[in-house]
Design a protein around this nucleic acid. Structure first.
Lengths: 343, 343
DNA sequence: ATATTGAATGCAAACGTTTGAAAAAATTTC
DNA sequence: GAAATTTTTTCAAACGTTTGCATTCAATAT
C-alpha cells in the first residue's frame, strides 16, 4: 500500500501489456517504435512521474557521473572557491560532486577515498590532509591509481606520483609580497608562517626566505612564528612579535586571516598601518579589500584552480591510453593596497 | 589488456572454482562458510584489491546512502558552516553528501532536484533559491514529496509544505540587535537590508521595524537600503546614507559582510566607530571578532543548524508511517563588541 | 549398511535498465 | 494470394551483488 515506490519501466510495461524494452525505447525516442505507442507511453510516464533509475544505469554502463572532492576543510574562502570552480565546469556536464571533508585526518581521508572507489566515482580531486602529508603516507592512494580512476591533486601534492595536479605558484607570490615590502622600505620583515610541513606553508616560507636573501637582509629566527591559518591563531604570535626588543616593521602573513589578526593586534597596540608597521596577506579574500586599511595581499585564483583541475580531469578521461599527467601552476598575483603603502 | 577493470566477485569465484555466492558469503563472514575457504578468499580479495561495487548493492537494496544538499551558494561562511554541521553528523553514519549549488536559479534548482531523485538520493536538504522563492514556484518539489524522499528545508522555507525545517530565529536576533543599539542611545538607525523577498532578509527587516515601533522611533524610508549580502554591495548604499542631510547614527547590516563594508566607508569618511556611528552585523563570522573595532553581531549557529537538520532527517527516516514534520527554530544570540559600545 | 544429521556449497532470482538479434505483425509487391 | 519487405515488438543477456532454498558430500548414529 506504500505509494512511494518509484514507478519503474516494468510497471509501465504491465500497464500497456508490452515488454519493458518497448517502454525503454519509447521513452528514449527510439525510431523503431510506433508513433502512437511512443506518445501514449511518454504521456503516461509523465503522468505517473516516472524518473529513470540512474543507479541501474550506472551498473549497466559502469558510469556513475559522480566525482569525489576530498578536501581538508570547507570553511575557508579559498577551498569553497575551488569547489565553485569545479562546479562551474562539471555540473553543466552532468557530473555530481561528492564532497568529503577530512578535517586534516589521514584516517578520514583513507575512508573517504575507499568509499568513493566503492561507489565507482569516475574521478577524484584530492587535496591531501595535513596528517597524510606529514606522515608521508600514500598507500591509500595506490588503489586509486591501480583502478585508473583519474586522480587530480589540488595544491597539496606528492611529487612522486604520476598524476595531474593544479597548484598556485605560492613561492613566487610570497616572493613578490616580500619584495614589495622591501621596495617600500621595510627592513625587519616578520613572517607568520602556516603549519609546518604543508606545501602551501613551506612554499610561501621559502619565498619569504629567498627574497630576504636576495636583498641581503638578515634572517631573524625570532621573526618567524607559526599560525594555523585562522585569525585567532595569529593573535598571540603577533603580540609576541610586537613585544620584541627589536620588533618587526612589517609582517607577512601566510594568509589574509592571519594578516587580519595581526592587523587587529597592531591596532590595539596603537600602531599605525602602514606607517608604523606594514602588512601583507595572501589569498585576496573578498574581505581583504575592505578592511581598514585595506590589505595588501596575493591573489590566489581558487575558482580558476577548480576550473583548471576540471580540465585536467577531462583531459585524462578522454585521453588515449598513454596518458601523460599534466601539472598546471597558476601564477599568483600581488595586489597592492593600503596596508603596505607607506609613503 | 586493460588492467583497470575493477575485480568482481565473479572473478574471484572463477579463480577459486566456486560460485559467486560462496565468495560473497566468505567476504561477509557468513558462518556457513568453511574456515579455510573464507580465509583464502579474503586473503586473495585483499591481495587483488577487491572493493565491492556499491552501485549494484544500491540497486539491490534500494538504498544509496547518499544525500542531496541543495544550496544557493557555498561561498559564504554561514552556508559552509551548515554543510559542515551536516557532515559532522552524517559522514560518520556512512552517508555521502551530494552538494548542488543553484546560484539562486530556479532552473538549476529544479534540475538538481530531478537529478538527485534520479540518483535515488535518500534525503534532500534544501535551501531554496531566491528565484524560486520570489516566483513562488513549488511544482518541482511535488515529485520529491510524492516520492516520499525526506525533504528538509534549511532557513528558507515554504510555509505551506508539510516538511521538516530548521531555521534560525532571525526575527528576534534582529530585534535584539536594534534594541541594543537603542539602549546605547542611538536613535537614527539605518538598515542595510538583504535582497527583497528572501525570508532571511524579511525576517531581519521585520525585527528592525518592529523594534523601532516598540520604542516609538520614526521609521525613515531613506534609512533603509538594499544590499546583496556581500561586502561590495554595501559600499554605495552606505555612502548614500552618510551623505544624507540627516545621516544615521547607527547602521544595522543584514550580515557581517555588509556591516564590514559599511565600516570601511564610515572610516573612509573619517567617522569614529562607535562614537560617531554605531554598527551591528549578523552571522558572527570568524572575522567579525577581529575587525577594528570588533563588530557587534548576532550569532547564527550554522553548524548547529546543519546538525539539527540531520537530526530531523534521521527522525523522518526512522519514523513510523504517520510521520509528523518538525520545525526547529534555533535562537540567535546578540554578541556585543566594540562597534556599538559608545560610552 | 542405511538412515540421519550437519556442514559447505551451488542455484536462481531479484534490483531496473538497455540493446543486439530474433520474432512477429503489418504492409507492399508482383 | 503468396512472397518479399518493412515496421514493430519481444527475448534474453548483461551489469555485480545478495539470499532463501535446494543440493551435495561427508561424517555420525542406528
Amino acid at each position: 500500500m506504500n505509494s512511494s515506490r518509484p514507478v519503474t519501466i516494468k510497471d509501465i510495461a504491465r500497464r500497456f501489456r508490452c515488454s519493458p524494452s518497448t517502454v525503454s525505447r519509447a521513452l528514449n525516442d527510439h525510431p523503431a517504435i510506433n508513433e502512437d505507442t511512443r506518445k501514449n507511453i511518454q504521456e503516461y510516464a509523465k503522468e505517473v512521474g516516472y524518473q529513470r533509475n540512474e543507479v541501474s544505469l550506472s551498473l549497466l554502463n559502469k558510469k556513475t557521473a559522480s566525482l569525489g572532492v576530498v578536501v581538508p576543510t570547507i570553511s575557508n574562502y579559498y577551498e569553497t572557491a575551488v569547489i565553485e570552480g569545479l562546479h562551474t565546469v562539471l555540473q553543466p556536464m552532468g557530473y555530481t560532486l561528492n564532497i568529503c571533508v577530512t578535517n586534516e585526518s589521514y584516517l578520514l581521508e583513507k575512508e573517504s577515498l575507499s568509499k568513493l572507489l566503492s561507489n565507482r566515482t569516475e574521478g577524484i580531486f584530492l587535496s591531501v590532509s595535513q596528517e597524510t602529508y606529514d606522515a608521508g603516507y600514500y598507500e591509500h592512494l595506490e588503489s586509486v591509481i591501480q583502478r585508473k580512476t583519474p586522480l587530480i591533486f589540488i595544491d597539496r601534492e606528492y611529487e612522486d606520483f604520476e598524476t595531474s595536479r593544479a597548484t598556485v605558484d605560492d613561492y613566487h607570490g610570497a616572493f613578490a609580497a616580500v619584495e614589495h615590502l622591501i621596495s617600500i622600505g621595510y627592513r625587519q620583515i616578520a613572517h607568520l608562517k602556516g603549519p609546518n610541513g604543508l606545501t602551501v606553508s613551506e612554499q610561501r616560507f621559502k619565498g619569504y626566505i629567498n627574497c630576504l636573501k636576495k636583498y641581503n637582509l638578515p634572517i631573524r629566527e625570532d621573526l618567524i612564528l607559526n599560525t594555523n591559518f585562522n585569525v585567532e591563531s595569529a593573535i598571540l604570535p603577533t603580540k609576541r612579535l610586537l613585544e620584541l626588543a627589536s620588533p618587526p616593521d612589517a609582517i607577512f602573513g601566510v594568509n589574509d586571516q592571519v594578516a587580519i589578526g595581526a592587523m587587529r593586534v597592531a591596532k590595539d597596540k596603537g600602531l599605525r598601518i602602514p606607517q608604523d608597521i606594514g602588512l601583507v596577506g595572501f589569498d585576496n579574500s573578498p574581505i581583504s579589500a575592505y578592511t581598514f586599511p585595506s590589505l595588501t595581499t596575493v591573489h590566489r585564483p581558487g575558482r580558476k584552480i577548480g576550473m583548471e583541475a576540471s580540465r585536467l580531469f577531462l583531459n585524462q578521461l578522454n585521453g588515449s591510453g598513454d596518458f601523460a599527467p599534466e601539472s598546471i601552476v597558476l601564477p599568483s598575483e600581488l595586489v597592492i593596497r593600503e596596508s603596505s603603502l607607506r609613503i
